[in-house]
Amino acid sequence: MRFHHICIVTTDLDRQVEFWQDVMGFNLMVRTTIPDGENWAPTVMAPRALLEDLYKTPGAKADVAVMVSEQGAMMELLAPIVPEVQKTPSDKLLYKDSGIREIALVIDGIEEFYKKVRAAGYKTQTEYVWPCANLGKTFIFYDPDGNMIQIWEHSLAASDALRAS
């Protein structure tokens, strides 16, 4: 099995698209409204009925953007219109509650990227990049909706082990 993508439900699609383009370096591949937008792929069932089944809401509708990095990482950004999305309280985005808490991405040049994130005004969990065992270096920061993004740079030993597996 391979990882396909992650979906971030957002209160502000424009702001998230800008973040993923300008800070994270992703490219916008698709931006549409579902189920009525022109890029919505036909399905076996009516698109409206499918979305209502997924959202458990009559008249369900959302704006969506699909972003892809040069290395192939894919991100789905979803801004529900019906029902209206509610921002998750920041205390529910921490490690004390169950669920997915962070997105982790691997890059080269972590120190420069850390400076870029800080210069752009994004909050980091620490004032520094830290080493993590013999795996490499890392830091965590928050996207515009308060979701945690962990950035990794593998150590040479970890990179060699991953290539060998």
Rank of each mutant, 00 (worst) to 15 (best):
K56S: 07
D143F: 07
L105R: 01
I81C: 07
D14P: 05
A104T: 14
P83V: 02
H4G: 09
W20A: 06
Y95M: 13
M29I: 15
L156T: 14
H4V: 11
A158F: 12
V82K: 08
N27C: 08
I8Q: 10
C132D: 14
M45N: 09
V44L: 06
G59L: 01
L93F: 08
P47A: 03
E112S: 14
A119S: 12
I100V: 14
G109T: 04
C7T: 15
P131C: 03
L78Q: 02
E84R: 12
I110N: 15
Q150V: 03
E38A: 05
R48M: 06
P35W: 01
V44D: 03
I107T: 07
I110H: 12
S90C: 10
H5E: 09
F3G: 05
V129P: 14
I149N: 05
I8C: 11
D160I: 03
G59W: 04
Y142E: 15
L50E: 13
E127P: 03
R31G: 08
D36F: 12
W130H: 15
V9P: 02
L13C: 11
K123F: 11
Q16H: 08
D160T: 10
G121F: 00
D14S: 14
A49V: 04
N39E: 15
F3R: 08
T33D: 08
I151R: 05
T124Q: 00
T138K: 14
I110A: 10
F139Y: 11
Y122G: 12
E84P: 10
A161E: 09
L54F: 08
T11Q: 09
D14F: 05
H154T: 05
V9S: 11
C7K: 07
K137A: 04
T10P: 04
T11P: 02
Y122T: 04
A62K: 01
L156Q: 13
F141W: 10
Y128H: 14
V23K: 02
M24W: 06
W20P: 04
R31N: 11
L105S: 01
G121D: 01
E38W: 15
P144I: 00
G121W: 00
V66I: 14
M67A: 02
T88A: 02
